[in-house]
Every structure is written in structure tokens, then in C-alpha cells.
Design a protein around this nucleic acid. Structure first.
Length: 297
DNA sequence: AGTCACCTGATT
DNA sequence: AATCAGGTGACT
């Protein structure tokens, strides 16, 4: 599920439901969840600790334990983390289970098995923090910082914005939305984005994410209605072929970095030159055919 | 610096 | 059968 808004909602919910609770036992059902450490080792270290607080850094859920260690949970594409009442039935894709002293259970659900959990020392935690860029909704994220990180890069601006060392929290949906609201085409080389456009991007990132955070959190407190169900939907993501709400042009989808980018070709202009180059690049590349090609030497 | 593997499940 | 999916680290 998650980009920053969903991770934030999951974290807040966990803090409300289980902050201060004691974990009496833990179980991991798939080796890749805790790889390269085996689940039993992690489970043994969790058992008997108190979950002091849950917080978020980027797309990581962090669980501070009374042992001094921190459990890092990364939900990747399909992970989810929540508390269930004592007798509630477990979802089919339950990958880890923490039993609390009162009998409730923290469930880690993850159909695609891409999510990861790891115990971090204080040092590990500091290293993680240092490797990540600023939080987009904090003061530390400024237009000046964004400008500095875009400077000189030939790489497409969309791909740079997905780099979690530039700014944390953006994923494929909200990066598309932020670029749309800033009127910047995703394939533009980062270094060609003007100072004025950077100001607009900075503002759009903050606006789009703060709105999405509120919406994601509300979706929890009032189950049954999704973010989209009340006008907080997306403008371009997933809307290939539909008319742009702003100008009526047809929303396009292109491939970038192995994933889809959606944009409005009229609201997000880009020089013809770059469009042609991008098109050429993608058509020239032979489709992957199984094995590695021999490298020239 | 860019592609792909990691996985399963939903949709075409 | 093929393609796509809200992510990222490990690879050419």
C-alpha cells in the first residue's frame, strides 16, 4: 500500500493502540521477512520487551523497545501493520505476529513478501537516519535544499524525487501528483528544472503529501470511505486515457525506470527534444530476453 | 547510472 | 499468457 501518508497512518494507529504495551511473544512465518537474520533470533529478542513508542522516518515504521533496540519495519509494496483483538481471525497473508500481554496481537500482513523487519541498534538507527533525506513536512525540507539536490543531474526529475536521500516519502503516486501540480513533466532532466519551478515543486510536494496524510488517517478513523471517495483523489496517477481535470487533454502514461509515469502533456510541458529523446531511448532498448548479454571487454 | 530481481495476485 | 502493482537493494 504505502507511501508516506499510509505509513504515517499505520504508525499513528499503532502508537495509539499499542504504545506502552508489552510484547510477550513473537513469531515470524517466512524467512525473507527478517533476512539475513532468522526469525527465531529476532523473536527471542522481541519477547518480553515493551513497545515504548511507534514513530515514522520516511517510509519506515520504527518501534522503540524497552531493550534499547528499535524494530524497523519496511512495508515495501503490500505490507500492513495493525493490532487485532484477542480472538480475531488472522489474515491469510500474515507474515509475523506479536502477541501482547493483554492477548491482542500485532499483525504484519504482506501478500507479496517484499516487506522487511530488522532490529536496529542505536548506531544502526543513526545510520538509517543519516542516509535518508529530510522529511517533506518538516522545516528541514527547503526549496534551497531541493534545488541543491537537483543541480547538475542529467537524470529525469521524477527519478531524482523518488530517491529517498533527496527527500523521503514520495512514491510513484504522489511524485506524479506533485509533478502535475507543479506543472513539471516527469522526464525533464533535473538540472533543467528552473528555480521558479523548484519553488513550485517544493510547495506541491508539501501540499500534496500533507493533504494525503490527513486523508489516509481519516480513512482509518472512518472505515468504509477511501481517500478517493471524497474528492481527495488523484489528478493523473492511474488515469491514462482520461481527460485532465485542469485542461481536458488526455493523460498519458510512459515507462520510466521500470515503472509507470502518468502526466498531462499540456499542463506539464516539456521541450519536444526531450520527449523525442525519451521515446527513442525506450524503443531502441531491446526487450529483456532472460539471460545476461555478454559484456564487451 | 540504469535495469532487474524480489514475490504474489489482480486484471487484461 | 502476459502485464501490471503505492519499493528498493543488488546487480550489470
Amino acid at each position: 500500500m504505502p507511501e508516506l501518508p499510509e505509513v504515517e497512518a499505520v504508525t499513528r494507529r499503532l502508537q495509539e493502540a499499542a504504545g506502552g504495551a508489552t510484547i510477550v511473544a513473537a513469531r515470524f512465518f517466512r524467512p525473507q521477512t527478517t533476512h539475513p537474520v532468522d526469525g527465531e533470533t529476532v523473536a527471542a529478542r522481541l519477547a518480553g520487551t515493551r513497545l515504548q513508542r511507534a514513530w515514522r522516518r520516511g517510509k519506515n515504521v520504527l518501534l522503540g523497545l524497552s531493550s534499547g533496540e528499535t524494530l524497523r519495519v519496511h512495508l515495501r509494496m503490500t505490507g500492513n501493520l495493525f493490532v487485532l483483538p484477542a480472538e480475531a481471525e488472522l489474515p491469510g497473508a500474515t507474515r509475523a505476529l506479536f502477541t501482547l500481554a493483554d492477548g491482542r496481537r500485532i499483525v504484519f500482513e504482506d501478500p507479496r513478501l517484499l516487506g522487511r523487519m530488522a532490529l536496529l541498534s542505536q548506531q544502526d538507527l543513526a545510520a538509517l537516519d543519516a542516509a535518508l533525506g529530510p522529511e517533506p513536512l518538516d522545516r528541514t525540507f527547503t526549496a534551497a535544499w531541493l534545488g541543491r539536490r537537483l543541480t547538475g543531474l542529467r537524470r529525469a526529475v521524477k527519478l531524482v524525487l523518488l530517491d529517498q536521500s533527496v527527500v523521503v516519502g514520495l512514491g510513484n503516486i504522489w511524485v506524479a501528483e506533485a509533478l502535475f501540480h507543479a506543472g513539471v513533466a516527469p522526464i525533464r532532466p533535473a538540472r533543467d528544472v528552473s528555480g521558479e519551478e523548484i519553488l513550485g515543486l517544493h510547495r506541491a510536494i508539501r501540499r500534496v503529501l500533507s493533504r494525503a496524510v490527513k486523508s489516509a488517517y481519516r480513512a482509518y478513523s472512518a472505515p468504509g470511505h477511501t481517500p478517493e471517495s471524497e474528492g481527495f483523489g488523484v489528478a493523473v496517477y492511474g488515469r491514462e486515457g482520461e481527460p485532465c481535470a485542469q485542461c481536458g487533454a488526455t493523460i498519458r502514461r510512459i515507462g520510466q525506470g521500470g515503472r509507470s509515469s502518468y502526466f498531462c502533456p499540456r499542463c506539464q510541458r516539456c521541450t519536444l527534444l526531450w520527449r523525442l529523446l525519451h521515446l527513442l531511448q525506450r524503443q531502441t532498448r531491446p526487450r529483456a530476453s532472460g539471460r545476461n548479454s555478454p559484456s564487451a571487454s
